[in-house]
Structure formats: C-alpha cells, structure tokens
Simulated assay, not measured.
Amino acid sequence: MNKLAILTDYFGTIILVQFEYFRPQSEIRKLVSSYYNVTVPDDVSDIMRAEIANLRFVIRGQVTTDLNGVEEQFGPGATLLCGPTYRWSNVRFTADTQVFGAAITPMGWAKLFDVGADQLADKLVSLEEYVPASSLPLVRDIFDAPDEAQRVRAADGLFADMVDPVRRIDEDFLDQVTAWITSPDPNELAVMISEMSRSQRQIERLCKKYFGSAPKLLHRKFRALHSANRLTWQDLTDWQDIATTAYSDQSHFIREFKQFNGRTPSEFIKGAHILVRMTLQQRLQIDHESPFSLIG
C-alpha cells in the first residue's frame, strides 16, 4: 500500500487529495493491475485522460462526469463500470468524496465480463448489469467494509468469484499486444502487425474484443499516454524528446497529445492535470505485477 496526502495549487486554490494504492491478491493481479482509494476533502474539478477499463465504487460524496456525452451525477452506492476510454472527459468531486476503484487489465476484462471491450469503450454503465446474480452480494461487501484493508479483501473476493474458468481467451494475442502497447520505446503499428502470424482481419477483431478499439486507435492512444508519462517522470522540454514514436510534426504531436490527455503538453507541464499527474507520480512508488499499472 502507498499512501500520501498531496497539497497542491489548483488554479490558485489549495486542495488536499489523498491517494492510496493497494495490490490485489496474487491470483488476480493479471486481471486487476491495482486498487486505489481517492479521498477529496474539498470540491475538485479536473480532467480524466484516456485509460484502461476501470471499476469505481462511490463510497461517499458525489462524482459528476460527462464520459457518456452528457453530465451525470453519481452518489454513494454507485458502481461505475467504465470500458477502456479513447478520449478525455471532465470529472468533478464534491467535498468529502471517497472513491474506491480497480484498474481492469485487458486480460481481466476478457475473464470477468462477457461483453467485448469495444461495446463499452468510452461508456460508463452500472456494474450490476454485467455481474452474475450470484456475485451481487459480494458487491455490497465492498461498500460495507469498515476499512480499506477489508475493502480490498472484499474486492479480491468479488473478482475471484466473477472469473469464468471455461471462457476461451486468446492469451497469446493478449500478451503480445500488451507487450507492444506498454513498451515505452518507439514501437510502430506496422512492426507489430508484421510480427504476428495472423490476418489483418483477425488482428482488428481481437483488438476490438480485448482492448476496445482497432489497432490504429490503440496505438495512437498509448503513444500519447507514454508521452504524458515522460513529461511527469522526466525533466523534458523538447517535443521530440517527449514524443515516444514518430509524428509528422509538432502540431500533429500536440493534437494527438491533447485528444487523449485532455491538455496540450505545455498545459500538462504547468500542472493543470492534478489528478493524473499525482497518480502517475505515485504509481512509481508501488510494486507492479501488470505493466498497465504504470500507464492506464
């Protein structure tokens, strides 16, 4: 577990945000890259960048988001299943809000949910619609937990119960694409496709099923996320150093960066992205079973 209270300047306002990270039990670490607990004592508005799939439990307070294209509010007891996202969205927390979440890897999505990732990409839905009826009481245990340690154990129990052991999954494909998109080094789309002994049609279908989009959009998303990570973790100022793969020019890079991160590189450096920047900094302090822990 990593725990830190962060005091920072948000457009002139001093706010205190607390992040806590927890490791799932060993049996499901390939399915859930990490658990996280966010506590926001004061009203906060921010931008969420494109992410891997997430499951969030609103423990108290209220969360407002426009991920579904309209502004929606979610209060205590809400279970928010979010497919992989390919654009930024606005988020707002009222004072004294607590959210417990789980970052779901593509492998986890395939084993936990009987729906293609592309069908819920850029969508926020209620978890109850996608959980077997027999597992629903375990969802309640997460809200009823008296502390975070027991909440983590309750979440472990829920995910272990949801795994379908007979569902057929192309794990070789999942592993190969995961290694490609989580690599911080330049890794162009054509290189990955050329190394796969599969047809273009198969690659397109499986990418949508497991990762939520066709390979081209997947590639664009993760190279933009890697660039934001480099801005956070390294002292870089030249856009050609920040960009992890080839862009046609600086304008192209800025457009791509903003589409997936919600800010231009310059705005990102200046610290407007409080939640993203702080969570990225804290991810360096925890142990990682899944390569997605440092990215999505």
Score class of each variant (00 low, 15 high):
E20K: 06
P24I: 04
S26A: 15
I28S: 06
L31N: 02
Y36F: 11
T39N: 11
V44A: 11
V44W: 06
R56Y: 00
I59P: 03
Q62D: 08
D66Q: 10
D66V: 02
F74C: 07
T79A: 03
C82W: 05
Y86C: 01
A110S: 15
G116F: 05
A121M: 08
D122Y: 03
V125K: 11
S126E: 09
Y130V: 08
S134Y: 03
S135C: 12
A145T: 11
A145Y: 12
E148P: 00
G157F: 04
D161E: 11
M162A: 13
M162E: 11
V166L: 14
E171M: 08
D172G: 13
D172R: 10
D175R: 13
T178A: 12
T178H: 06
T178M: 13
W180A: 12
P186L: 09
E204P: 00
E204I: 15
C207N: 07
K209W: 07
Y210I: 10
S213I: 09
P215I: 14
H219L: 07
R220S: 10
R220W: 01
F222C: 02
R230M: 10
Q234L: 15
Q240T: 09
D241N: 15
A243P: 02
T244G: 07
Y247T: 08
S248W: 09
Q250C: 08
S251H: 11
F253R: 05
N261D: 03
N261P: 00
N261R: 04
R263C: 06
H273K: 12
V276W: 07
M278F: 10
L280R: 02
Q281F: 02
L284K: 15
E289F: 13
F292L: 11
